[in-house]
Deep mutational scan, measured.
Amino acid sequence: PDLGLTQLFADPNLIENLKKNPKTSEMMKDPQLVAKLIGYKQNPQAIGQDLFTDPRLMTIMATLMGVDL
């Protein structure tokens, strides 16, 4: 199971919303991170391994779920 990750990354406004959010806007200036996020739309399971190697993803996930870290 993808634990709902498919829906989190399926939002067509995902990148724009993250660019507008004060907690994630600075991160979204990294083209490699943006490319990763776009890739998760097609393969949400890929985030599982990346969560352990890129701490920014935890902040992004929390933001998408509405959790304040």
Rank of each mutant, 00 (worst) to 15 (best):
E16F: 06
I60F: 03
L18G: 00
K41N: 13
L37H: 00
E26R: 06
I15K: 00
A35P: 00
L18C: 02
M65Y: 07
Q32T: 12
T53W: 09
L64S: 02
F52R: 12
N13C: 08
R56P: 02
Q49D: 12
N43Y: 09
T24H: 02
M65T: 10
K20F: 05
Q7K: 15
M28F: 03
P12T: 06
K23T: 08
Q7C: 09
I47G: 05
T24Y: 03
Q32K: 12
I47Q: 04
K36Q: 10
E26V: 07
L14A: 05
A35F: 04
T63K: 03
P1H: 10
K19M: 13
D50I: 04
R56D: 09
P1Y: 01
L3C: 12
Q32N: 11
P55T: 10
N43S: 06
T53L: 11
M28N: 00
P1T: 14
T24V: 06
K20W: 06
L57N: 01
G48R: 14
L5I: 12
G4N: 15
A35S: 10
N13V: 04
L57D: 00
K29Q: 10
L14M: 11
P44Q: 06
L69N: 13
L37F: 03
D2E: 13
Q32A: 15
I60M: 03
T59N: 06
Q49K: 14
L33M: 06
L51M: 14
K29A: 07
G4Y: 15
L57E: 01
S25N: 08
P44V: 09
I38W: 05
M65L: 15
Q7T: 12
P55M: 09
E16C: 06
M61N: 01
K19C: 07
G4D: 15
G48D: 11
L57I: 11
N17F: 15
D2L: 10
D68R: 02
E16S: 08
R56K: 05
I47Y: 10
Q32V: 13
Q49E: 14
I47K: 03
A46T: 12
Y40A: 06
T6H: 14
G66V: 07
Y40R: 01
E26W: 07
G39K: 14
T59F: 14
P22W: 04
L57H: 01
Q32W: 13
L37A: 00
I60N: 00
N21F: 05
S25E: 09
G4M: 14
L51C: 08
D11N: 07
A10Y: 06
A10T: 12
D68K: 02
G39S: 14
A10S: 14
G66I: 06
A35G: 06
K41Q: 15
Q45T: 13
F52H: 13
P12W: 03
L8V: 10
D30G: 00
P22Q: 05
M28L: 07
M65W: 07
L8N: 03
L14Q: 03
M27C: 04
L8H: 06
G4F: 15
